[in-house]
């Protein structure tokens, strides 16, 4: 969905500001949040403490997934051994009990860990929407540095209160290293971006 001003946000994914340090990024994020922006995202080369609070999110769904699948793995392991040793293929060895549960513990434990670990990774990736080879943010040439030494804040165009000029003004006040318009498509938007950047160079 585009914002309220169709002409202003046409073909625009968002406005991207780059900072030199996590501290600058953090204070810019706090300002943007205070200014009412909600559809925004910070991109950093390592996890920055405090960004989640600054952007206004706290919970992620990973832990409950891992707990669920861990329990499921344990039940699967124990249930499988119980079923095979008691129901499906009982072997009477010297009158020993079929349901010899202490011998089932190692495999129950291993399957608990296996299910939980796989669900942690798959769950994390799924909630993050990965794999996703293409993302509009990659259209910004400066974005290469997000995996090296650049700390980025992107105010997205589909925020209800998004206005390109206002977003630029807000971000300029936070003295970033650069500000870039990110296009929804790669080539044409970059051209318009280059012309637009003339006007906003600090």
């Amino acid at each position: 969905m585009h914002g309220h001003d169709e002409a202003n946000t046409h073909g625009l994914y968002g406005v991207l500001a780059e900072y030199d340090s996590p501290e600058e990024l953090l204070s810019a994020t706090q300002r943007a949040h205070a200014a009412g922006y909600r559809k925004m995202e910070a991109y950093t080369p390592f996890p920055v403490d405090g960004i989640a609070e600054a952007m206004g999110f706290e919970k992620n769904g990973v832990a409950p997934i891992v707990l669920t699948f861990g329990l499921l793995g344990g039940l699967t392991g124990f249930g499988m051994q119980w079923y095979s040793a008691v129901v499906s293929y009982p072997l009477n060895i010297g009158g020993r009990p079929f349901f010899s549960w202490p011998a089932f513990i190692p495999i129950t434990f291993e399957l608990t860990v296996l299910f939980a670990a796989i669900s942690a990774v798959v769950g994390m990736l799924a909630l993050n929407g990965l794999p996703k080879p293409y993302h509009p943010i990659f259209n910004a040439p400066v974005f290469d540095r997000a995996s090296a030494d650049g700390f980025f804040l992107c105010i997205e165009a589909d925020d209800p209160s998004f206005d390109r000029e206002q977003a630029h003004r807000l971000l300029e006040e936070t003295s970033p290293r650069s500000i870039t318009d990110v296009g929804l498509t790669s080539v044409p938007a970059q051209e318009t971006m280059a012309t637009r950047r003339e006007g906003i160079a600090r």
Binding site: E41, T44, P47, N60, V62, V66, N128, L130, P133, A146
Partner: peptide, 25 residues
């Protein structure tokens, strides 16, 4: 890399998943 961008929401889940993996390992 599966399209990793370093988005803060992704890092948030990533850190949790990594920590839990450490706890499981």
């Amino acid at each position: 890399a599966m399209g990793w961008t370093g988005a803060s929401r992704h890092w948030h889940r990533y850190k949790m998943a990594y920590l839990l993996l450490g706890g499981l390992a």
